[in-house]
Design a protein around this nucleic acid. Structure first.
Length: 900
RNA sequence: GGGCGCGUAGCUCAGUGGGAGAGCGCUCGCUUCACACGCGAGAGGUCGCUGGUUCGAAACCAGCCGUGCCCACCA
């Protein structure tokens, strides 16, 4: 290590992520590690498509968690030498982006209609140029190793081409069609939205009961409704066919007050006789159920509420022009006057709201484009049933399948300007319709009559383009090298709320257009809730900004924290876990300093080069510590090497199984407790003496630990690695460790663990009798019972066998140190007899001994009870019974020793 | 209405048939030559409740209570 580096390492006792992260990230970028060549096959390669964030978006905790998981896997596989691609891009996010720009324009006092479509779309593009890459920059702060050189956007030329192709093919197959149908109309965004963009909220409304007089009789039919204003569009009243109360009325008519329309009384099993009066007013124009019933019975579809949310002329001049809410008031007033309002009661029920604008959905019949899903769904169901696409955790597989089996047509048109304008042209003269399959080949004049063509005004649902993300980003429909090398992708992590909206549709389009499933594994990650358990949401003010967390604690800390939190599907944000990550980064830095500033390996001994063949060409053949350089003479060395290799095996296994939470916790426990708390403390004297063997071992352990942790905490591990003598290139492309099973050593593990346990007990004893660590106490062991030599040092006990010259004496007779005027054993801890010392508080000693005796007595009682149970002895496994007997003997023996 | 989770230490969470764990917080002691974002020690839990299965249950089964989410066309 050169002097400058040494000085840096010596001087900084605290790891400072802000100083390190930007520098390291640009080193990775400059080296081009994240931009793989399009070579090899999808089976050999590793690829992931990022769930494309909205261009309007800012990085939130969901992105940060999702990104931490994807990056961990991409980095691990890249280090394993696989050609790894993390596909990056952004989504044009139709409604969201259009709203943002419209809001901006409104501040200038301009509406989009003032500008006109073309100019407005131009303004959106300008907005996107200026602000659209913000979230991509934020992914860099997280350390995400995406291919930033291949960044895609759903409105890129190539992408638009893919969208046209898909539309055309689905149209030609007859899956895409245009129809007058009931849609979820969002008065906020003035557009239809799909079922999946609707959320139901509990709302308290008033349930009105209205009497409809039956024609030619004194009888009335009472119906209940929360939306009396829609009665203006009623075209029937329905009762259950089996409802005896109304059997004779079926086929008759009642009269709609206010309008005077005759309404047929029809029978439909949808009507629940138990609810209200058992009679249901049917409004096919403004209620999805009524719409279905209306179509079934061939009822007239009257529309009284327009796309602007106001009553239309159809509603009659009393109501035309009013908003729905105003109309409701007027209608109620009028009904009350007529005396037909027989009841009003508060009523809580769930009501659809737009996920986009937050406004209450107005179900409307309108002319929209739809995509029939049954045919597309069938193979996508099969692919998941037979695990060609695996969905984890398992419960989501069933959720997916159930939804897919019930799938309904998808309304794909949106009344917006920002997005993929539907590639359909109409000829008004001869009513021909044209569909373009390529933006470059848009028709100009009608082929039949030569007339002017008019392009469809609507754009496609944003999710229509997201649905083809994994292959459209790789250049489909062209047969590109990227497509050949990276499709299908390897896996996908996603939030559960877009399982249907996005994941299911990708599987369907992948099978239909790209000839294969889009990914082999889907992992549905946790939802991170706010600290208090509420949802993280901007409107509630419960969001926590990942970038602020990165500013304060560093990206590695946030990544560690999020992964550690993610053990279950719903999890509260835990500052403590992020701090744990920050502390871990600091500890890595400092353990690195201890090892790297003190090891003498290089000076003393030439390195072998056995590892050279594992090092990818990009790194250059590195000289490093190899397996052959390790020293296995000492049991503590065999112990830490064994523990390291087992940790490597277990952590990699967990990462491969997407069990990030347990992977990070296990890596943490190994590094902090076993390596730092024990091994480094045990090894320090040898390290300070400059012993070559321990230096080689430590360099090996450090290298492999850093590499193992790199996918989880890329920055700090890369930084520490840069000081490692074996470091010839970046850790980002260093071989990921594979467990070296020849180093597993169960015996060494057991022996050292016994030593650790004994050390702990001695320390506890010392603490409890009030002797500080500065005072060395004396312990005597019988010949052959000597514990491992670190036990005495780390517990500050002078442990020795009875001196030979005092062979005839009992241990009690040995004089120890200056502190002992009273050479007697005061306690036995394992094999160690602790000698009395004046530093000991005799009262404490006595109470400590009594406490121990108490523990032992209760253990003896427990074990005796168990062994007295004949059924236990007879039916429990023999080794368990034997173990219980051994314990009992041990407890009894110790109790004997401690007897007063 | 249907489905899926969750309920373990003060807090956030591990633990899925054989003596209750981690991190944080708390108490005590340490400026021990990597780290006070540190080191050592400790206190703290009838594992939601009630039954059942078992020699043995935090774990498996049933019911209940509490809590969160998803899906669903009862006005």
């Amino acid at each position: 290590m050169d002097a400058e580096k040494r000085e840096k390492l010596e001087g900084k006792t605290r790891y400072d992520p802000t100083e390190v992260e930007a520098r390291i990230f640009s080193e990775w970028m400059d080296a081009g590690y994240f931009h793989p060549d399009a070579e090899g096959t999808p089976e050999e390669n590793f690829s992931v498509a990022i769930p494309p964030p909205n261009v309007t978006g800012a990085l939130h905790m969901g992105h940060a968690l999702n990104g931490s998981m994807q990056d961990a896997l991409v980095r691990m596989n890249r280090m394993r030498g696989r050609n790894s691609l993390w596909i990056l891009g952004t989504d044009h996010a139709g409604i969201a982006t259009q709203s943002v720009v419209e809001k901006m324009l409104r501040a200038e006092g301009v509406s989009r209609h003032d500008l006109g479509r073309e100019e407005f779309v131009k303004r959106v593009w300008e907005w996107r140029e200026e602000y659209g890459s913000r979230i991509v920059e934020q992914y860099k702060r997280l350390g995400a190793s995406c291919d930033y050189e291949r960044e895609r956007f759903t409105l890129d030329d190539g992408y638009v081409k893919a969208v046209y192709r898909v539309f055309k093919q689905l149209y030609d197959k007859g899956y895409i069609y245009r129809d007058n149908y009931m849609v979820n109309w969002d008065p906020g965004s003035h557009s239809a939205i799909s079922d999946l963009e609707v959320e139901n909220r509990e709302v308290e409304d008033t349930l009105y009961s209205i009497d409809y007089p039956v024609e030619g009789s004194e009888q009335v039919l009472t119906v209940a409704t929360v939306r009396p204003e829609t009665m203006l569009a009623d075209t029937a009243v329905a009762v259950n066919p089996d409802d005896e109360r109304y059997g004779d009325l079926i086929g008759q008519y009642c009269v709609l007050s206010l309008v005077g329309r005759r309404l047929p009384i029809i029978a439909d099993e949808h009507v629940d006789p138990e609810f209200g009066t058992g009679a249901l007013k049917i409004t096919p124009g403004h209620d999805p159920n009524d719409f279905e019933i209306g179509r079934k019975h061939g009822l007239e579809e009257i529309v009284v509420i327009g796309p602007d949310g106001r009553l239309t002329d159809e509603a009659g001049e009393r109501f035309a022009g009013l908003t729905a809410a105003e109309a409701q008031e007027m209608v109620v007033l009028a009904l009350r006057e007529e005396g037909v309002l027989s009841a009003e009661e508060p009523y809580t029920h769930s009501v659809p709201f737009s996920h986009r604008s937050g406004e209450r959905i107005e179900p409307l019949i309108s002319l929209q484009w739809f995509c029939r899903m049954d045919e597309l769904a069938a193979p996508a169901i099969e692919a998941v049933e037979n695990d060609r696409v695996r969905i984890a955790p398992g419960q989501w597989k069933r959720v997916y399948l159930e939804w897919m089996r019930e799938i309904r047509p998808w309304c794909i048109s949106r009344q917006l300007w920002w997005g993929h304008r539907i590639p359909v042209w109409y000829c008004d003269a001869c009513e021909e319709t044209y569909v373009a399959e390529d933006p470059a080949a848009a028709p100009e004049r009608c082929g039949a009559c030569g007339g002017e063509l008019r392009q469809e005004e609507d754009v496609l649902d944003t999710w229509f383009s997201s649905a083809i993300w994994p292959f459209a980003t790789l250049g489909w429909p062209e047969d590109t090298p990227e497509l050949r090398a990276f499709y299908p992708t390897s896996f996908l992590t996603t939030a559960r709320e877009i399982l249907f909206l996005w994941v299911a549709r990708m599987i369907m389009t992948g099978l239909e257009f790209a000839g294969d499933v889009p990914f082999k594994d889907v992992y549905v990650h946790s939802v991170i809730q706010a600290r208090d358990g509420r949802r993280m949401s901007k409107s509630l003010g419960t969001g926590i900004d990942p970038l602020e967390e990165i500013d304060v604690h560093g990206a590695d800390a946030l990544r560690f924290g999020l992964l550690a939190m993610s053990s279950t599907q719903d999890v509260r944000y835990s500052d403590a876990k992020v701090q744990q990550g920050r502390d871990l980064a600091n500890k890595l830095w400092n353990a690195g300093r201890l090892i790297l500033l003190n090891c003498k390996f290089q000076q003393n001994q030439p390195l072998t080069n056995a590892r050279k063949d594992q090092v990818p060409a990009a790194v250059g053949g590195g000289m490093g510590v190899s397996r052959d350089d390790l020293s296995l003479d000492r049991v503590e060395d065999r112990w830490i090497l064994s523990r390291l290799e087992r940790t490597i095996a277990s952590v990699s296994e967990k990462l491969d199984a997407y069990d990030f939470a347990h992977a990070v916790q296990e890596a943490y426990a190994f590094f902090w407790s076993e390596l730092c708390d024990w091994y480094l403390e045990i090894a320090k004297p040898r390290l300070y003496e400059g012993e070559a063997e321990v230096s080689a071992n430590l360099l090996w352990v450090l290298e492999r630990t850093l590499a193992l942790l790199h996918p989880l905490m890329p920055f700090v591990t890369e930084e520490v690695w840069s000081y490692h003598p074996s470091s010839k290139g970046h850790l980002a492309v260093h071989p990921f460790p594979r467990a070296e099973e020849s180093l597993f050593d169960a015996e060494a593990e057991a022996e050292v663990e016994r030593g650790i346990e004994l050390t702990r007990r001695l320390r506890t004893w010392r603490d409890l009798v009030g002797v500080g660590a500065k005072t060395e106490l004396a312990g005597v062991v019988g010949n052959g019972d000597e514990p491992l030599d670190f036990v005495g040092r780390l517990s500050r006990f002078d442990i020795r066998p009875p001196a030979p010259e005092q062979g005839s004496l009992k241990p009690e007779d040995i004089l120890i140190g200056d502190h002992s005027r009273s050479p007697v054993t005061v306690a036995t801890v394992g094999p160690v007899r602790i000698m009395a010392s004046l530093d000991m508080d005799t009262g404490q000693v006595r109470s400590r001994l009594e406490k121990r005796r108490e523990e032992l007595r209760s253990e003896v009682v427990r074990a005796e009870g168990k062994l007295a149970n004949e059924k236990f002895v007879a039916r429990a496994p023999a080794e368990l019974v034997e173990e219980e007997r051994t314990k009992l003997e041990r407890y009894r023996a110790e109790l004997e020793e401690l007897a007063e």
